[in-house]
Design a protein around this nucleic acid. Structure first.
Lengths: 275, 275
DNA sequence: AAACCAAGTTTCACTATTTGGAACTAAATG
DNA sequence: CATTTAGTTCCAAATAGTGAAACTTGGTTT
């Protein structure tokens, strides 16, 4: 997966439009028409029209002075709805607050999105934060605590897919850089119920993470507590594991009640019907 | 603008797809196919295909158990890019932190998006009041401090459009419920340089707001400090105005340097004509 | 148990939209 | 002033979207 042009998305016009959005977002800065043209397979006129329409719709914003495109504010509006409805964040919030307060360390809540880690909420060691200052950011799954905790509890098909889509880039000399090594670690994680990140992504950064599961073992996300080797060692960090695990379980239970009822039990009719 | 079905969007397939996204988001809860079908003009099969494709793309998420759709996590990813690049939030962050610390009150940063207030960042009061606002959330412009502060400094065309698109719903008995009343207030705001919200949106909630402007008077957004009538009165709140104004100016200056260079000063010719 | 109903899904002939090569214009450069 | 580069418009060909209707599924009524 080198730097070649993105393959055109599968489904129709809408898929292509989403592709364009991703392309623009990928630059992480306002971007000119020509730059986008290079990196896309679309012919000039086609790309041009896409940018026009998306800008019209507020999905992109256009700066006429600089002639640059950037992701638009309509996305922020929509994402607010997504964050509220489809993420674990609203449910997890009070638990994260408590965990953050108790540990005094950085706490993350993440979900898996196209085999990547998507951070949906966070508490800093220091100050209270708001929404997507950090939430919305993505990171690699194979070398983070939350990523591995989540992958370990995927069903077989999803796991195979996820594992095969990792880049295995070596960030530090402790990074797991092969599918085999990752699978071995995932087995261990599944067995003991939590994952560790021992400076696999950033030097000096260690963390412990637990998956958030429904009672039916459906994996919903993961939470982690992160520390730095300067201030603590693994023994201190692992002491938090039982606490982290309990919080993860609470979030899972809460989520199940609220959003992933998985009931099906015998209750049957959530829809009662007159006449 | 009552509860009738949304008019079909202008531009093509993509516009319609965005419409569907808005429709789903508007429910503020996971929603079933049939519910969406009622509120949209699309025929069954068409809407169905849209939902399929959008779900495929991760713009929506589908819960197979409940058969419900909700805005998808891909939006959160994209919005992160939008927030980082197209909003004032990254620039304003340190200033908001300081302002929040100094005042101890709730602080908002907002931008105008389709004539509505879009909150892009927020700091909670030391003693938080339960209140309607979070990053990504939208609210009315005609009855909020930030909304009025922004509208007052729009150019004439934009102002006319914005003013005409307000709903003028009466939230409290102090809400301005006519275009004339709003325009009068906007004149006053323009003159004194800041806006107030005197329980016009929520009873007991008052605020002062200043616009964020470039040196060329281009309106970029607004910031506000909010309080509750239980703990303070307007005199106390208005004492913060100079401080708020200074922060708004700092943000404006910073933003101009970073993102809205507006240099080009006298270059003038948006249309210069050869020969 | 058979008939019924409602919600969701698939089909397919019809057509409106998208497509993209190429021509065009505007602005930047030598 | 000639030339290049960047952005915009055109239009015939082809693809992709449309939506009425038929079908499937799962649950409820007679």
């Amino acid at each position: 997966m080198g730097g070649d042009k993105t393959a055109v998305a599968g489904d129709g016009t809408i898929g292509k439009a989403c592709d364009v959005l991703d392309q623009v977002a990928a630059f992480e800065r306002p971007v000119r028409f020509a730059e986008l043209l290079d990196r896309s397979n679309f012919p000039k006129a086609t790309l041009y029209r896409f940018l026009q329409v998306l800008t019209n719709q507020g999905m992109l914003s256009y700066d006429p002075e600089r002639q640059t495109y950037a992701p638009g504010m309509r996305l922020v509006r929509l994402a607010h709805a997504a964050w509220t409805q489809s993420s674990l964040a609203p449910i997890a919030r009070p638990f994260l607050d408590a965990l953050s307060k108790d540990t005094g360390e950085t706490v993350h809540l993440a979900q898996l999105d196209s085999s990547q880690v998507l951070y949906v909420d966070k508490r800093n060691a220091a100050q209270p934060i708001e929404m997507y200052s950090q939430a919305g950011k993505v990171g690699p799954a194979y070398c983070t605590g939350v990523g591995k905790a989540m992958m370990a509890f995927l069903d077989e098909d999803s796991l195979n897919e996820a594992v095969s889509q990792q880049s295995y880039h070596r960030f530090t000399d402790k990074t797991l850089t092969s599918e085999a090594a990752l699978r071995a670690d995932l087995d261990l994680i599944r067995q003991r119920g939590y994952a560790i990140d021992d400076e696999e992504h950033e030097p000096g950064i260690i963390c412990v993470a637990c998956p958030v599961l429904t009672s039916g073992s459906r994996m919903l996300g993961a939470i982690s507590v992160t520390g730095s080797t300067e201030r603590m060692d693994f023994n201190q960090l692992e002491a938090w594991v039982p606490r982290v695990r309990r919080v993860a379980e609470q979030i899972g239970a809460e989520a199940q009640a609220w959003r992933f009822p998985e009931t099906r039990a015998k209750v049957s009719n959530d829809r009662m019907q007159a006449t």
